[in-house]
């Protein structure tokens, strides 16, 4: 079990669970990161945070702290 935060650039994984609750969790799901979704880490911002990921065919940016809530395998 590891989170999106621990993934290397260029690697893909499947979302297995979303931790957290409330607005943030809902927002992450609304943007298409749901159970079983394929997610690819594209790059890290020049200052080291946030991340850029590809999900459902589009580019999304998410902070590392929030990416911890996305459990992948």
């Amino acid at each position: 079990m590891r989170s999106l935060r621990d993934m290397q650039c260029g690697k893909s994984a499947v979302v297995v669970r979303l931790a957290g609750e409330g607005a943030l969790k809902r927002r992450i799901m609304d943007m298409g990161i749901t159970k079983g979704t394929n997610i690819t880490v594209r790059k890290v911002a020049p200052l080291g945070d946030p991340l850029e990921v590809t999900v459902r065919g589009y580019e999304l940016t998410i902070r590392k702290a929030d990416a911890e809530n996305i459990i992948v395998e």
Binding site: G22, A23, R27, I28, Y58, E59, L60, T61, I62, D66
Partner: peptide, 12 residues
């Protein structure tokens, strides 16, 4: 209130 989540689309 909660900080607004920064989960943002990078449009084409």
């Amino acid at each position: 209130g909660e900080p607004s989540p920064f989960v943002m689309e990078l449009p084409q």
